[in-house]
């Protein structure tokens, strides 16, 4: 029983740890998709975010500066995607694929130039994103162990839920949110009402890159302590799956991310237990669950009507 409580604590901890990067990226994906731009470049934007965050934090010793720079790095690549797809009407999937190629290439080339290795130097605990309740809960009894496990998570994890509330507010309670959603449904109507569709979409794509960059930074500044070429392995795509699962709503995407976070958490807990299950098979779980979840839910999802379609201004 004590063991169970302990494991449960670890499971909750691990779930939140894996959920946070996904949720940042998923909120980013929401912005882009809802405004009408398919962004599968999220994965690449996470990768540059992961690299930039770890690198800036390493040199400045300031995790929050690294965190923000990670967002900006993601945003820079989002800007490229936006220019190609919104301004020049490029195929959104191909542009996203290009980003997914380009961004890791840039990250690794730069890493080799700076660190003489494709990995960054591991961060000191002081340069990592801080844990908020370190030392508040002492170990000892099973329940205090449990609390300690659950609350030993990083500030970025708490922050993601704050950001979620803000994003939700922007989506449904502000002028920008209304217009942005309208641009994804009926851009021509927006143009006829004097709304600048291209600008609105560009802002949304940039926001998506910023949030994806933050998600990437979570992986290298909280979940682990350094950037490696294998830091971002499909999280961007899982985030997109979570968004589809969540019917293109941030609050729905959160549930999707928690589900995938839980799968990863289970992998950790089972992997460290005495159960003899192949690590490879355990690693497969999040992807298999993604497919199953898509089967169960995607049919009922309302896709923004103009999603994926370039909008050509009438001249």
């Amino acid at each position: 029983m004590d063991n169970f409580i302990n494991n449960l604590g670890i499971l909750i901890y691990a779930t939140l740890l894996y959920t946070a990067p996904l949720l940042y990226a998923a909120m980013g994906s929401c912005f882009s998709e809802v405004s009408g731009v398919v962004n599968i470049g999220i994965e690449g934007m996470m990768t540059v975010g992961a690299f930039t965050g770890a690198t800036v934090a390493y040199f400045t010793g300031n995790p929050w500066l690294g965190f923000v720079c990670a967002g900006l790095a993601g945003m820079a690549f989002a800007l490229l995607h936006g220019i190609a797809t919104i301004q020049f009407g490029a195929d959104q999937t191909i542009s996203g694929t290009a980003i997914n190629f380009l961004a890791p290439g840039v990250a690794i080339v730069t890493a080799k130039a700076i660190f003489n290795s494709s990995d960054t130097v591991p961060l000191d605990p002081s340069s990592k994103i801080p844990t908020l309740f370190a030392g508040v809960f002492s170990s000892g009894t099973p329940w205090s162990n449990f609390m300690k496990n659950v609350f030993s998570t990083y500030a970025s994890t708490y922050l993601v839920f704050v950001v979620l509330v803000v994003v939700w507010f922007v989506f449904y309670k502000t002028r920008f949110g209304l217009r942005m959603r309208a641009c994804g449904e009926h851009p021509l109507a927006c143009q006829s009402l004097g709304i600048n569709v291209h600008r609105t979409r560009m802002i949304c794509v940039c926001l998506s890159g910023f949030l994806a960059g933050l998600g990437g930074a979570c992986m290298t500044m909280a979940t682990s302590n350094q950037f490696r070429p294998t830091s971002i392995v499909g999280q961007g795509f899982i985030a997109i799956a979570a968004v589809i699962f969540g019917k293109f709503r941030p609050q729905g995407a959160m549930i999707g991310c928690l589900l995938f976070g839980l799968c990863s958490g289970l992998r950790v807990v089972i992997g460290s237990s005495s159960l003899n299950i192949s690590v490879q098979l355990l690693s497969m779980i999040p992807y298999v669950v993604t497919v199953i979840v898509l089967i169960l839910f995607v049919g009922k999802s309302h896709v923004p009507a103009a999603n994926g379609k370039p909008f050509v201004k009438t001249k």
């Binding site: 502000t174 002028r175 209304l178 217009r179 959603r181 309208a182 449904e185 009926h186 021509l188 109507a189 927006c190 006829s192 009402l193 004097g194 709304i195 309302h302 009507a305």
Partner: peptide
């Protein structure tokens, strides 16, 4: 029609000139 189908009548009418 330049109307956004999943939006309400009110949302469609004020879109672009929303009171805040």
């Amino acid at each position: 029609f330049m109307l956004v189908p999943p939006f309400t009548v009110t949302e469609n009418i004020v879109l672009g000139m929303e009171p805040v």
